[in-house]
């Protein structure tokens, strides 16, 4: 098994990319992942979203290791 990560997408973002979960090759860092996603899914360019690594929101560029769960989170609208 190569260096794979699990991506989860939610809300408007899941709608834009057409799925709520996918496995991709690990780009190594959160910024590399963001660049890759914007290239693969140009419709994300107009969206604001944050990322969570293993269920914690990241505030700065973060290394990603194999097996981690990365979530793409559009602005919350609960309540």
């Amino acid at each position: 098994m190569p260096d794979q990560i699990r991506l989860k997408a939610f809300g408007m973002l899941a709608e834009k990319i057409g799925t709520d979960s996918l496995e991709i090759e690990n780009p190594g860092s959160s910024e590399a992942l963001r660049r890759q996603l914007l290239q693969q899914f140009p419709s994300l360019q107009t969206l604001t979203f944050r990322m969570a690594v293993d269920r914690k929101i990241i505030q700065a560029e973060t290394d990603i290791s194999a097996g981690q769960e990365i979530a793409l989170l559009p602005p919350f609208s609960g309540g």
Binding site: L73, F76, G78
Partner: peptide, 9 residues
């Protein structure tokens, strides 16, 4: 709850 929970409407 409104600001911090990952919930979408």
């Amino acid at each position: 709850i409104k600001a911090e929970l990952p919930i979408w409407g």
